[in-house]
């Protein structure tokens, strides 16, 4: 059998296959953070803290756990995307240098990027599906519309992931990831309408929240679960998130090329 050049889609799938080979051996390293963490959050915040909250206008009339569950779906995706888009990618550039090995094959830098993003999307998807199942079992899901939270979460996660992967490709040192975590991810998780409605924050903070993929993802997931999402709003959120993904992919292609073909 002779070696040959594969197409971009096939190349991305090969990237996923390589990751899967790794994952089969190393799934334990991230299983707890990926699958258990959101469940623990749902138990502590949704049920524990929620027991102190009287259902009211702020929670859409629902028990707090039901209010929180769709948002946690999105938060989990965004948080899982964080590690997979920073340290995991950085290591392949810098520590393990596996990407340098891959570009010596017919695979191009852009195809490496596609493979990585596809893999991250699959990871986010699996995390979201598992969480939705557990949340349903715990009684935090009460409508069939909540299922839409899964694609919403994956889309929001990728809207964060794609630009971050591009950013990672420009880094020579991992220090910036700390800042990214503390000043972007954590505030985004805490202040973008996931744990409490945005109106409880001062109005000048709202536009900042609107910029985050978390807010759009939570609007989509919660709106679908509560049946309060209009088609125009849904389209707007999806369009914004898709635009972030597109920007991330375009920048990522540029930076991967620059980094791997010097």
């Amino acid at each position: 059998m002779a070696a040959r050049v594969v197409g971009p889609l096939r190349a991305a799938l090969l990237g996923v296959e390589a990751q899967w080979t790794w994952y089969r051996r190393n799934w334990r390293a991230t299983a707890i953070t990926n699958f258990l963490q959101p469940v623990l959050f749902l138990l502590a915040m949704g049920l524990g803290f929620g027991s102190q909250v009287r259902p009211g206008e702020a929670t859409g009339g629902a028990p707090y756990a039901v209010f929180l569950a769709p948002a946690l779906l999105v938060l989990t995706a965004v948080q899982n995307a964080m590690f997979e888009s920073t340290y995991a990618v950085f290591s392949a550039f810098k520590w393990q240098k596996t990407y340098l090995g891959v570009v010596a094959t017919p695979i191009t830098p852009a195809q490496i990027l596609y493979g990585r993003l596809l893999w991250i999307a699959l990871r986010l998807l699996s995390g979201a599906v598992v969480f939705l199942g557990v949340a349903t079992a715990l009684g935090a899901v009460t409508s069939a519309g909540a299922v839409w939270g899964v694609p919403a979460a994956v889309l929001a996660g990728m809207a964060f992931s794609a630009p971050v992967v591009a950013f990672t490709a420009t880094r020579e040192k991992p220090e910036a990831f700390n800042g990214l975590y503390r000043f972007v991810l954590v505030p985004m998780m805490l202040f973008a309408g996931a744990f409490f409605p945005l109106d409880q924050l001062p109005a000048w903070l709202h536009p900042l929240a609107w910029l985050t993929p978390v807010w759009h993802g939570v609007e989509l997931a919660r709106g679908a679960a509560f049946g309060t999402l209009g088609p125009a709003a849904a389209l707007g959120h999806v369009a914004y998130l898709a635009a972030l993904v597109a920007v991330g992919v375009l920048l990522g292609r540029k930076y991967f090329q620059r980094r791997l073909a010097v």
Binding site: A18, R25, Q96, G101, P106
Partner: peptide
């Protein structure tokens, strides 16, 4: 790829060549 086995390194790499 230091997180894969010796054999997997060869197999995964070979797959990139289609």
């Amino acid at each position: 790829d230091t997180e894969l086995t010796v054999r997997q390194n060869l197999e995964v790499y070979g797959r990139y060549f289609g």
